[in-house]
Design a protein around this nucleic acid. Structure first.
Ligand SMILES: [Mn+2]
Ligand SMILES: [Mn+2]
Ligand SMILES: [Zn+2]
Ligand SMILES: [Zn+2]
Lengths: 142, 142
DNA sequence: ATTAAAAGGAGAATGATTATTTATTAATAT
DNA sequence: ATATTAATAAATAATCATTCTCCTTTTAAT
C-alpha cells in the first residue's frame, strides 16, 4: 500500500480537475478511503465520518462513494451481503474475503492479465472489467 | 455440456437421497436447469414454469433454487442486478457476462486451479469458494 | 385411506441502495 | 460586499430483489 497522504492528494487532484467541490464531509470520506487498508463498507465509512460530523447522512456516503467510482478513484467489490470499497487500488484486482470475520485483503497473484486475455480470446468478448473473488477462512480464524 | 436427461437424473437422485420430496413444480425447475445453457435468472425460470403451472409463486422458485444450492446441485452467480444460475456445472468456474444483452457463458480457462492455489498460498487463507467474473461486450453486441 | 411432515401460494416484510425534495453552502458576477 | 447561481448535504421516501409468514395443499410412508 502506498502513502495515504500521497493517495489523498491524488484523489483531491482528480476531484479538482473534474470541478467537483471539496466539502468537509467529502474530505473525511477521502481520508478514510486513502488511509484504510481493510476495504471498508459504506456503513464502516459512515460510522467513522459521524464521529467528526455527527449530522452526516448515510446517503451522503453513498453519493460520495458513487462519485468516486465514476471518476475511477475507488473500486467497489460486491460481496453477498453488501459492498466493500478499495480507495488504494481503484482498478480491478483479486480479493480474498474471510467468511468468518469479514476481513478482505489483496492477494498478490501472478498471471491475472494472462487470464483476462485468455477469457477474451476464447469467448470473443471485449472485456472491460472483472472481479476475481476468493472466499475462505483467514489464518486468525482457522 | 452434458446430456440434459442425465443431468436431470443426477439432480433427482440427489434430492431423493436427501429425502426431499419431488413435486411437479420442483421437477419443472430441475428440468429447466438441467436443459438450459444460458444461466437463467429466477425470473427466467419463473416465466417458464408458469407456462406449465400458472399458479406457481415466485417464492417457490426462490425456495427450490435455494434448496438446490444447499445440496450443491446448482451454482449461483451474483451479478450487479440479480443472480443467474448454472445447473449444469454446479461448482465454481469462471463466467463472462455481456453488459449489453446479459448473455452469460463459461469460458474454458486454463490455470484456474493454480490461481486458487496461489491465492491460498500467498494469503494463508483456507479457500472454500471463488467467483471469477469477467464483464464485457459479446461478439453479437459489438 | 390415514396421517404427519413437507412443500406450495399469496402477499407482507426486509434491507441495501437510489431517488427526491428541501435547505445550505460555495463560486461567480455585479 | 451583495446578489445570483449552481453544487452539495440532509432528511426521508421509494425501489426492488429477496426472504419471511401464515395458511392451504400435497406428498409419501404406513
Ligand atoms: Mn483491494
Ligand atoms: Mn456456468
Ligand atoms: Zn477471519
Ligand atoms: Zn451481448
Amino acid at each position: 500500500m502506498a502513502d495515504p497522504q500521497a493517495r489523498l492528494e491524488q484523489m483531491l487532484a482528480k476531484l479538482k480537475s473534474r470541478n467537483f467541490r471539496l466539502t468537509p464531509q467529502r474530505l473525511a470520506v477521502l481520508q478514510i478511503l486513502a488511509a484504510s487498508t481493510n476495504h471498508p463498507s459504506v456503513e464502516d465509512i459512515y460510522e467513522e465520518v459521524k464521529q467528526v460530523f455527527p449530522t452526516t447522512s448515510l446517503a451522503t456516503i453513498y453519493k460520495t462513494v458513487s462519485l468516486l467510482k465514476e471518476i475511477h478513484e475507488v473500486l467497489e467489490i460486491r460481496f453477498t451481503d453488501s459492498s466493500r470499497f478499495d480507495g488504494n487500488k481503484p482498478y480491478p484486482h483479486p480479493h480474498i474475503l474471510c467468511l468468518r470475520c469479514g476481513r478482505v485483503l489483496d492477494p498478490e497473484l501472478p498471471g491475472v492479465d494472462q487470464l483476462v486475455a485468455a477469457a477474451a480470446a476464447c469467448s470473443g468478448y471485449q472485456i472491460v472489467d472483472h472481479r476475481l473473488n476468493f472466499y475462505g477462512i483467514c489464518p486468525d480464524c482457522q
